[in-house]
């Protein structure tokens, strides 16, 4: 098993993006998916950073793929998607409709917001040219095991959500703008104020969800650390870590320790808790429990 870094979910400045990928080049990850994953309005602010980031990552021996948006609706978003397939890099689709632009026979990757729930869909994607698939975070371990087996037979590397706030929903509506009493078309980019997303809690003050523009994420950081051994045994080929502002290098190192040195789950969890104090860690989805169920 190795480590994949997913696309940045949040609206970071060009400087933050540049610094993030420069640092990432020297971390023990095998591959990086880069691109705007959530809102096309953000892209003009940082897309000029992509070529240099790709170059730095490749120079450091990382595999790099370009991500599509999760929800593609507008004409310019469709054009942008088509443009991704014109590059030399593999594309990771985050919206199934992106396949309309896939050049015949070109290999591609599949991100966690594409619905791969069963062998039939995995095999169908493999026949289309899928080489890697990151499974949806809501899948229980029993399904993951079945899909890992199907992936081996179909020659597809299967990855699971390893760490970070999990993407739970995507909408036409921008909740960040709504929280500021604005419409999406006049959002004034308020999501930039919350580089790890904005907390939504219950009326009892219980942290619940995270708003990130048109995307809704879990409040808890979903971690596969407690299941690393089971996932390895199932033949899962990688864990996906989702970029966040704080201590990301340390997070990567802990997962690298799990994979390389078999760092036991309790130690991994206590290390994570030490570097991310106050963070809620959950693992419910893999256990076929409510996703928000906290790690023990």
């Amino acid at each position: 098993m190795d480590l994949t870094i997913g696309p940045i979910a949040f609206f970071w400045s060009a400087e933050q993006v540049r610094a993030f990928y420069q640092r990432l080049a020297s971390t023990p990850v095998q591959r990086v998916v880069i691109g705007e994953w959530v809102c096309s309005k953000r892209l003009p602010f940082w897309q000029h950073e992509i070529p240099a980031a790709v170059e730095a990552l490749q120079a450091a021996g990382k595999e790099v793929a370009l991500s599509t948006l999760t929800l593609i609706t507008l004409k310019r978003e469709r054009r942008q998607t088509a443009g991704l397939f014109a590059s030399d890099l593999p594309v990771e689709i985050a919206d199934l409709g992106a396949l309309q632009h896939l050049p015949e026979g070109a290999p591609f990757w599949v991100g966690p917001t594409v619905n791969v729930y069963n062998e039939g869909t995995l095999e169908w994607l493999a026949a289309k040219g899928a080489r890697r698939i990151c499974l949806p975070p809501e899948l229980p371990l029993a399904s993951v095991v079945q899909l890992a087996r199907a992936g081996r037979q179909a020659g597809v590397a299967v990855e699971v959500w390893g760490h970070g706030r999990a993407p739970l929903a995507i909408s036409g509506r921008c909740y960040h703008a709504r929280l500021h009493d604005r419409a999406k078309d006049n959002c004034q980019f308020v999501c930039a104020e919350d580089p790890d997303g904005r907390l939504v809690e219950t009326l009892e003050g219980q942290p619940f969800l995270t708003v990130n523009g048109v995307q809704t994420l879990s409040h808890a950081h979903m971690t596969a650390a407690p299941h690393a051994a089971a996932l390895r045994e199932a033949g899962i080929s990688g864990l996906r870590l989702s970029p966040q502002q704080d201590n990301f290098d340390d997070i990567i190192n802990i997962y690298a320790q799990i994979l390389e040195n078999g760092l036991p789950a309790p130690d991994a969890l206590s290390d994570l808790r030490r570097i991310l104090p106050g963070t809620v860690f959950a693992q419910g989805f893999l256990d076929a429990q409510p996703g928000a169920t906290p790690c023990p």
Binding site: E138, L168, L209, S218, G291
Partner: peptide, 9 residues
């Protein structure tokens, strides 16, 4: 078809 809010809770 792209919403896991219910299973999160």
């Amino acid at each position: 078809g792209r919403c896991s809010l219910s299973s999160y809770a």
